[in-house]
Amino acid sequence: MFPTPIEKRSRAAQLSYQSLLPLALILWLLPLLAVANFSIKPESDFVNGNYWGLPSSFDLFANYGRVFFESNMPRYLLNSLLITIPTVIGAVALSAMAGFALGVYRFKGNLLIFFMFIAGNFVPFQILMVPVRDLTIDMNLYDTKTGLILFHIAFQTGFCTLFMRNFIRALPFPLIEAARVEGVAEWKIFWYVVLPLMKPALAALAVLIFTFIWNDYFWAVVLTQGPDAQPVTAGITEFNSQFRAAYHLMSAGSIVAALPPVAMFFLMQKHFIAGLTLGAVK
């Protein structure tokens, strides 16, 4: 079996593994640790050049207090939720249906449509920036949450459909045939047979899309401005004044902004593992 489990390797290999792992972990987490460290420093540390040392005073409460009570952060967080959740629901629902159609029915152009979904994933979204912005302005959706949601759904559905279609393809087809023989309506097959089987895929996809959309910065900057519609990723820069970057507040804000996807992952971990092992242990 590859890779050989670490317990079965030589003692030397085990030792080097045990010593290198924490090292690699620290190296990998260094930027995050730095941000966490920055977030409890007072502003004067940055002017004094104390970037990496210990904070000169412990300002956790002051910094996070300002993030929560003296800025638009709560509003931005709410915007992020109001943008992310409808997008997750919309993209997953649409792609589940599209994936069902593409995975179960044989019709002319099935493969062509599927390829188009895939091809859509290969379009770098930066080149869509100008047309999409113009489109949202023409539709009066510029600087609205609705505009951002609709765009995200449209863009994420391509990837989700690819994911869903392949997952449905891997389901045992006789289940669907059996239902058909019983004379079950097609939508009922989707609802009562296929959808329950797709739960792990739905959960995994939902977590994935949640983090994608929550972390989206590009479209947030292109399509929205100001605290009425902007999500937290773009809103963090509000801590900067015209001339100065407030590193400590931006760091605190970033940590707060990063918590929901992390929490989401831990809450949904079970589904992740279920999704990963689904095919393996049959």
Partner: peptide, 12 residues
């Protein structure tokens, strides 16, 4: 350095 990062030289 950015202009802010050049401040410590003066402050110190």
């Amino acid at each position: 350095y950015s202009w802010q990062e050049a401040l410590p030289f003066m402050v110190n």
